[in-house]
Design a binder for these strands. Structure first.
Length: 376
RNA sequence: GUGAGAUUAGUUCAGUUGGUAGAGCACCAGAUUGUGGUUCUGGGUGUCGUGGGUUCGAGCCCCACAUCUCACC
């Protein structure tokens, strides 16, 4: 797999780039819709490609391992064929799920033992079997198995956690290089930089992770409870440490404004559940600001959902209609909102690329952030 | 027609010896960052069926009426 930086912004650390995979090229900066269990919830693949214009989507190792399970995925010929998605896929290792399963999991040197949230059955993820699992799923980009350290952890805990993540990374890399892709196309993996909000740990983590980085590297353990400013500080701190030749993936982030701020600090790739999960609950992100579609004030507003939007739902349906669907509990509401939000997120990164190419990214970003954070 | 029970928030219902009402859901508003189709936080939105009476004071006691449910002619 190959990452090629293209245009550098003069006034910030933003840049455009191209990530080449056997399932097609990804233009960066990019946002990757989350499709945890093999579906970007509520959006047809057709719309994901043609309307949202997604270039890559995510899957989740933890969820797919539990359901439908490796046997089915392997029989299907991998996740691409199973869900019939022919563009690139990235799978998270399940490290974050393990982190959020506090109470029904136990972390040891060997790996992590946890109980299924579905039936309570016990399972163990190790760096080695996580590679096997992600080989069976067949993602183009696999994520290393890490321990996601809480944003409010003290230095001692964060240091201990990082040391474990680093030992797991070495084992993961070894297993990855000693195994082969199962479905005839290339797979790569991104190591993950942890270290919580502590500069010394983050630098150490980055230097170590870089030893294992191929096309890209991920920044993990952010947007997990620490102040947003801390997150930006950590990205700025890491920027000079990571070579420009590596794609940088900020995991789990974030709001459209978070994404633009991170782009200006040199980040290339993003994923977040926010456009879909918050969309399902009535929150719409637009160039004019943020709307809560459940609000009573939209009940007789028959204007288009988002006049500036690129999705067909934006001009097809009105605010009053979508509010009605939300209040009525119609699944169609979640579908429309998800499609709109994803199309908007992809438009945000597309506009960012355009303005980096035009050389006016910084000025454009300052104005855009003000607009998109307005509460309507 | 007779008898019994019921009538309190949008709804289903609590409401102590009489001291101007409260819960679930709904609704209204806010949160949500490597997804458990969620979860969390805040808000009570009321002519206590109507009209009288007793009482310092009535959702509660008394009378009449209205409406509903059930049972029996």
């Amino acid at each position: 797999m190959e990452f090629t930086p293209l245009v550098e912004d003069k006034n910030s650390r933003a840049r455009t780039g191209l990530l080449k995979t056997d399932h097609g090229e990804i233009r960066t900066p990019i946002f990757m819709p989350v499709g945890t269990v093999g579906s970007v919830k509520g959006v047809y693949h057709r719309d994901l490609k043609e309307d949202v214009k997604a270039e890559i989507i995510l899957g989740n190792t933890y969820h797919l391992y539990l359901r439908p399970g490796l046997e089915i995925l392997n029989k299907a010929g991998g996740l691409h064929r199973f869900e019939n998605w022919d563009r690139p896929i990235l799978t998270d290792s399940g490290g974050f799920q393990v982190f959020s399963l506090t109470g029904i999991r136990k972390i040891t040197e060997e790996g992590c033992t946890f109980q299924s949230h579905i039936d309570g059955s016990r399972h163990t993820f190790t760096p080695e079997n996580n590679v096997t699992t992600q080989r069976m799923i067949g993602a183009d980009i696999c994520m290393a198995f890490d321990e996601c350290c809480p944003g409010d952890a003290d230095h001692a805990y964060a240091e201990k956690s990082l040391a474990l993540t680093q030992r797991w990374l070495a084992r993961y890399a070894k297993a990855f290089h000693e195994s082969e892709p199962l479905y005839g196309y290339e797979q790569t993996f991104f190591p993950i930089i942890q270290g919580c909000v502590y500069p010394d740990l983050r630098i150490k983590a980055a230097e170590h992770a870089l030893e294992y980085a191929d096309a890209g590297i991920a920044i993990g353990g952010l947007a997990v409870g620490e102040p947003t400013e801390k997150m930006y500080e950590m990205i700025e701190l890491l920027d000079p440490v990571i070579p420009r030749s590596k794609a940088r993936y900020l995991m789990g982030v974030g709001t459209p404004a978070n994404i633009l701020e991170a782009i200006s600090r040199g980040v290339d790739m993003f994923d977040c559940v926010m456009p879909t999960r918050n969309g399902r609950n009535g929150m719409l992100f637009t160039w004019n600001g943020i709307l809560n579609m459940r609000n009573e004030k939209w009940k007789d507003d028959f204007s288009p959902l988002d006049p500036a939007g690129t999705s067909f739902v934006d001009s097809t349906y009105s605010k009053a209609y979508l509010r009605h669907l939300f209040i009525a509990g119609e699944m169609f509401a979640a579908m429309i909102a998800s499609e709109h939000n994803l199309a908007f997120y992809l438009d945000v990164v597309r506009q960012a690329r355009l303005h980096i190419e035009q050389g006016d990214f910084t000025a454009w970003k300052e104005d855009a952030v003000k607009r998109i954070t307005t509460r309507l």
